[in-house]
Amino acid sequence: MSEAMSALKGETHTGFATVAEAGLTGMVTIRADLADPALAAALAPLGLTVPALRQVTAAGGRSLGWMSPDELLLVCGYDEAPGLAATLATALAESHALVVNVSDMRARFTVSGAKAREVMMKLCPLDFATLPVMEMRRTRAAQVAVALWRSGADEISLVCFRSVATYVMGLLEVSSRRGGEIF
């Protein structure tokens, strides 16, 4: 898999916050009945629990985010994603579920720094001041869909579709330029 390249190969810009494409990231979409005990059982070997409404759980360097009432997003290593998808699909074979590797169709970004949220305020109709750490939100960044969560006190992670990665990086870069601090 050495020839795999993320959409922007880790492009980074530093303004009043640092915006970076996070490089190759494994992602697995799980669509299932979130209350199905088989789902919890399938995730248990990873140390992950099914997140509650809008929450993100994490364990062992992987995280699991609530995307909709019947959809979760597992974020993991790029190389392990196909295997994890296959393992989970097998574990859920008896349930009505869809597990699919989506690592290649998305780009992941981080926005970090004390003023990280001032970058995102310019793009998303979302109240970042009250957004708790590790709460997942799906929303709009300017003209495209994104999913985001505060992955740390001063860090926001977001994912968008791969085809618009250049656009999203453009938004982030422009919005984080020095002089554009809001407060």
Binding site: L53, R54, S68, P69, P125, R137, R138, T139, R140
Partner: peptide
Amino acid sequence: PYCGVAAEESEL
């Protein structure tokens, strides 16, 4: 009613 959050028209 699924997410429990207020969404503005531009997200709908």
